[in-house]
Every structure is written in structure tokens, then in C-alpha cells.
């Protein structure tokens, strides 16, 4: 295929035991695109996201990233993951390392930079997310919003070609959500390719090139945000958006 998309997810299915959590999920995105996965909890959004960097294993279907077969047995998952950054709902910062230590660990141990180079790179990334004054703070000394920005810097320091965001603001107090979304906005503007699971509909509407609505492990509908939000084709999408809107 010559006009292959940057990320192609085709008919991905996954089971946990007897329960099928993903049913033939398909979507694709180009370099620089922002795709947002939405859907009720338990719909398989996070599982789908994790299949892309193989923190979860898809059992059927195919995932191709930049022309490479992600699911092939010969694919080195560690190589894959150094090119795909991930930001977690629960931050998952390394508790024993300072902000700069968290961000520098990957560049030093995975990319093989010297300690000083890794530290410089970490400092740059932390400045980029507005934490240049918290370099030596430890995770337990930072607010949730600050921790999530460190988490983002940690992923960015690996210079990934794709960033995965797994409900990055869901664990945050409402007043701290803004600072994380701001960092994500900056990334979109810098042209980063991003696959995002979120309940922040206004963010999705503002930055997404495509919205994928998942329910019970199936893609119900997908399309550009204007279409999906203003004019959903499926009644299920409409109901979901109504319910989300009433909580906004």
C-alpha cells in the first residue's frame, strides 16, 4: 500500500477471558493528526489506546504505525514504546525521582544519553510544560496538575512520533484541569500526532481532527468533531453526548 496512513488500526478485537472488550475496531490517522476516543466508561477506549503501544495485547486485527506492523511477533515492544509516548490517568510518576529525574530516566537509560545530556533534555521539556521552577521537586510535593505536566514532559523527552493520552485530566481537581489542557493545546499547535482518550468534550471539539465514539467495544460512529457533535448519525451517539453535556 503506497498511501498508507501514519497509524492504521484495522478490525482490532480483544478479549479478557470470555468477555470481548473490543469488537473489530478500525480507524486511522495521519501524521500531525489529533484523534480523540470518546465513550462511556467500560467502552474499551483505554484498552484500545494501550493496544497501540502493546501495554495490552490485541488478539485479532492489525495495527500499523508508520508502516510497521505493531502486532507482529518480531516487533520489539521496547523499541516500539520508545517511539510512542504515553500519559496516564494516574500520572504514574516514579515516586523516588525528582521531576527532572523522572523525565531524564528514559533518555539516559533507554536512549543512552549521558547523565548531563539527559538532564539538559529533561530541563528543556520541563520548561516547555511550565515547570522550570520545579525541577528538583518530588512527585509527592507536586499538585496533580503539576504531576501530570511532568508525566507529559517524561513522554516528550523520548521525542516520540505519537503521543497517547489516557484520560489525562480525569484524576484532577477541576481547577487543575486547565493547566494540563493548556500543555496539550501547545503540543497540538507544535504539530504532535496525538491519540487521546478524554471526557473533556470542549477540548475534543477544539483540537480533534477526528472523533471516534466507542461503546461496548465497538466503534459506533466516527467523524470530524463538527459533524459528530452537531449532527450525529447514530442515536446512541446523540444520547451519550446529551448525557455528557448535562454534566458539563
Amino acid at each position: 500500500m503506497t498511501d498508507e496512513s501514519f497509524l492504521e488500526v484495522t478490525d482490532v478485537s480483544k478479549w479478557y477471558g470470555d468477555e470481548q472488550v473490543l469488537h473489530d475496531v478500525s480507524f486511522e490517522m495521519d501524521r500531525g493528526d489529533v484523534t480523540v476516543l470518546i465513550g462511556p466508561s467500560g467502552s474499551g477506549k483505554s484498552t484500545m489506546l494501550r493496544c497501540v503501544n502493546r501495554l495490552a495485547e490485541a488478539q485479532e486485527g492489525s495495527i500499523r504505525l508508520d508502516g510497521e506492523d505493531v502486532l507482529a511477533p518480531s516487533t520489539d515492544v521496547d523499541d516500539l514504546r520508545r517511539e510512542v509516548g504515553m500519559v496516564f490517568q494516574g500520572f504514574n510518576l516514579f515516586a523516588h525521582l525528582s521531576a527532572v529525574g523522572n523525565v531524564a530516566l528514559g533518555p539516559q537509560r533507554v536512549l543512552g544519553l549521558s547523565k548531563a545530556e539527559a538532564r539538559d533534555r529533561a530541563t528543556d521539556q520541563l520548561e516547555r510544560v511550565g515547570l522550570g521552577n520545579q525541577l528538583d521537586s518530588y512527585p509527592a510535593e507536586l499538585s496533580g496538575g503539576q504531576q501530570q505536566r511532568v508525566g507529559t514532559a517524561r513522554a516528550l523527552a523520548m521525542e516520540p512520533k505519537l503521543m497517547l493520552f489516557d484520560e489525562p485530566t480525569s484524576a484532577l481537581d477541576p481547577e487543575l484541569i486547565g493547566e494540563v489542557l493548556e500543555v496539550m493545546h501547545d503540543l497540538v499547535e507544535a504539530g504532535m500526532t496525538m491519540l487521546v482518550v478524554t471526557h473533556e468534550m470542549s477540548f475534543a471539539r477544539a483540537v480533534a481532527d477526528e472523533i471516534v465514539f466507542l461503546d461496548a467495544g465497538r466503534v459506533v460512529e466516527r467523524g470530524p468533531p463538527e459533524q459528530l457533535f452537531e449532527n450525529p448519525e447514530k442515536e446512541r451517539t446523540d444520547r451519550f453526548l446529551d448525557r455528557i453535556a448535562s454534566h458539563d
Binding site: N53, R81, G85, M86, N92, A95, G106, M158
Partner: peptide, 14 residues
């Protein structure tokens, strides 16, 4: 916490 291991694996550590 399990999340610490997930985070380590996610940046490409074995």
C-alpha cells in the same frame, strides 16, 4: 504500585 511498572515499560525500559 503496578502503575510504576507500567510507566517504566511505557518509556521503553525492559
Amino acid at each position: 504500585e503496578e502503575g510504576q511498572i507500567t510507566a517504566g515499560r511505557a518509556i521503553g525500559l525492559s
